[in-house]
């Protein structure tokens, strides 16, 4: 049974050096939980995005929490480039594992199935592949005429960290059609969830919600965090706060500006 706790206590349970997977900006990003991790002073994270990141990654990098980053891209969307990410890579202060979207999905799917690796098309001849010592190329053992194919080792994150609109008192979490969250949770050892609200009715007992529900067996901890995606949006609840995101990109163009921003918006709410 999932532990019901507070946001800052949930952050206390994330160990230094943990491999954490976070969702992309269109999919329930737990920004309030990321702020709590920064307050807790977490260090040397291996941060994985499934498959691309935005402000959550930029915040953790700017706050010095990240040792290794794996993603297919880090972008602030229409607001531009991610300032703390770009500087960290340009100055070599984080180790960057450049990937491509389906490679991350596939490596998580391998972990979901409990198999050690999975193949993926594409990639041959790219510098993405050339810079990944952890990936291998083999000849299709079933059909020699099929040519070379890339093998990706499974990625099993220590923690999947997600936000959701709703959980029930039994620890089930409703994610709707955002199924990448399901893959992340299946693949990870445990999943920590922040939610807008907790309801009494069991989500699995209603067919309309059951198919979009992450069952309690995957969930380690749940904390309430109203507007937990801010300044990003949560589909069906609230839109992204575009002005706040633009303001962040501008202020975080310098480390000093970033720290000022964090002092104001990173405090407990």
């Amino acid at each position: 049974m999932a532990l019901f706790t507070t946001l800052d206590d949930l952050a206390q349970q994330v160990a230094d050096e943990a491999l954490i997977v976070l969702p992309p900006d269109y999919s329930n990003v737990p920004v309030a939980a990321v702020m709590a991790l920064i307050r807790r002073g977490v260090k040397d994270l291996h941060l994985l995005f499934a498959p691309i990141g935005g402000i959550a990654g930029d915040l953790l990098i700017g706050a010095g929490c990240v040792k290794t980053l794996e993603a297919a891209a880090i972008t602030m969307g229409e607001a531009g480039l991610a300032p703390r990410f770009s500087e960290a890579v340009q100055t070599n202060t984080i180790a960057m594992l450049d990937s491509t979207c389906p490679a991350i999905h596939t490596a998580l799917q391998a972990s979901e199935k409990g198999v050690p690796f999975m193949p993926l098309r594409g990639l041959i001849g790219s510098d993405v592949l050339k810079n990944r010592a952890d990936w291998q190329v083999i000849v299709d053992p079933f059909d020699k005429n099929d040519g070379p194919i890339v093998l990706l080792p499974a990625i099993q994150p220590d923690i999947a960290l997600i936000h959701a609109p709703l959980a029930d008192r039994d620890g089930n979490v409703w994610i709707g059609k955002r199924r990448e969250l399901m893959t992340m949770a299946h693949a990870a050892k445990t999943t920590f969830v922040t939610v807008e609200e907790i309801q009494d009715d069991n989500l699995l007992e209603n067919d309309l919600t059951a198919a979009g529900t992450l069952p309690d067996m995957y969930v380690g901890a749940i904390a309430e965090a109203e507007k937990g995606c801010w300044p990003l949006g949560l589909a069906g609840r609230y839109p992204a706060d575009t002005a706040a995101i633009m303001d962040y990109v501008e202020q975080a163009s310098s480390q000093v500006g970033f720290e000022e921003w964090l002092k104001i918006y990173g405090a407990p709410r």
């Binding site: 498959p51 691309i52 993603a71 297919a72 891209a73 880090i74 972008t75 480039l81 991610a82 450049d98 990937s99 491509t100 979207c101 389906p102 490679a103 993926l120 098309r121 594409g122 990639l123 790219s126 993405v128 592949l129």
Partner: peptide, 8 residues
């Protein structure tokens, strides 16, 4: 930002 899904 990065390669996104292009390599595939």
């Amino acid at each position: 930002p990065g390669s996104f899904g292009s390599a595939y």
